[in-house]
Nucleic acid binder design. Structure first.
Lengths: 222, 222
DNA sequence: CCACCATCTTGACGACGTTAAGTTAGGCGG
DNA sequence: CCGCCTAACTTAACGTCGTCAAGATGGTGG
């Protein structure tokens, strides 16, 4: 019980011991919290440290610099995204699987907008500098490619080359998330139409599915 | 001629006069230059000032703060984008017009990646705080909507409601630009395929056009 | 019981955005 | 033609930032 209490304490109160116990996790949690409030650009390492109840320099004993900490956040984001995408494979029907994948992607982007921008923003935390992040991104994309292949193999999707349609689908979903994050459907009142997040997602995903299933998919020169 | 010489001088040499002459333009130019090199996040107002040959506080006589200067940059970006999109209307054929519009959009995003990210990044220069930017964005989107309407009216595109397909097209193009900016086609070697920027754009635009022309376009609940 | 060493603190450096107060110089009334 | 007015610019400063160096702390193995 004492150990359990110590663990609980280390997760809730970070000021009892000089040695924090689990500062790394506490920092990541604090960063995740602050990033969700103020965005990536508004995040400061000093704020994170203060929020975790430690001094300004403490984080440097757990991360080489700020970018590395953001990379850690992005890495966890990729893990969450991959999980969400793979859970869509519960659907047997290729079309429904793809639809579920699209919805999962959009849901992740809207529930974790700051982390999503961190992952795909290309402006913070140079993803290029962290090979593990590139690998995570490739894994996530691979999940989509496999779903496309699954649909093509079953005859539900046109074509046999999965890369081009996969790229198109990913582009569409990524763009959709960007537009939804900017709440473009709430501004400009969209010619009087009442467009919600759900209808916009539904419409775009349906548009993409329509492109996947009907006619010949565009191909890349192999 | 003396006046002309003064103007030319003010555009090239910014250190001759205590009164700069045209510092506002010089600052915008310097910012455009620096932003293209180091990205939006790496831009500092002090660097811009130094690059223009003035002191650190000089910009504050022409812009209330850094965000306002970024907003100016973004505004000019939107103007460029709108011009590029509208030039696509030179094509009579609705499909070719839409294809040209897509290519123009992608070209802009790849030729001005930093400004593009500034315009659509949602992280810098809060677009929400500058109504003129929102209006510019709506104008740009309106250009696309009109092209969709044009295609629907001529029977080339399915459906009669332009908003849903327009959103889907915009999403796809925006996502495509993001992926291309991150050079996702160069990494991961794409299963051995040699995918270039052009083939990827072509394939995605063809995919979108296929969705626009074939079958029933998805609709939004009116 | 002590010495070790990872962990954390304090203090500092340069760069940043921004403001305040002073300086310069072109233009206008006399 | 002179002197003032004011916009445009300067220097100096404040607080915050990322980061590093040097010192303090305290649990743990010998």
């Amino acid at each position: 019980m004492s150990e359990r209490a110590a663990i609980l304490e280390s997760m809730t109160d970070h000021r009892d011991h000089y040695h924090h116990g689990n500062l790394r996790e506490a920092l990541v949690d604090a960063a995740k919290c602050l990033i969700a409030e103020s965005g990536v650009a508004g995040l400061s390492l000093r704020q994170v440290a203060k929020h975790a109840g430690v001094s300004q320099a403490a984080p440097y004993h757990h991360f080489p610099n700020k970018d590395a900490m953001l990379a850690e956040l992005a890495g966890r984001g990729f893990a969450m995204l991959i999980d969400a995408l793979q859970s869509a494979t519960a659907h047997e029907d290729p079309v429904e699987r793809m639809r579920a994948m699209g919805h999962a992607y959009v849901r992740f982007g809207l529930e974790q907008p700051a982390i999503y921008r961190l992952m795909f923003g290309a402006e913070f935390c140079p993803v290029e500098a962290y090979p593990s992040l590139q690998e995570a991104g490739s894994t996530a994309f691979g999940t989509l490619v496999m779903a496309v292949q699954y649909g093509q193999a079953s005859g539900a999707f046109a074509g046999s080359e999965p890369m081009a349609p996969s790229l198109a689908v990913w582009s569409s979903m990524h763009g959709l998330v960007s537009l939804l994050q900017n709440k473009i459907h709430e501004k400009k009142e969209m010619a009087g139409q009442q467009i919600t997040t759900e209808t916009m997602s539904e419409a775009t995903i349906a548009f993409v599915l329509h492109g996947l299933t009907a006619g010949a998919a565009p191909t890349l020169p192999g």
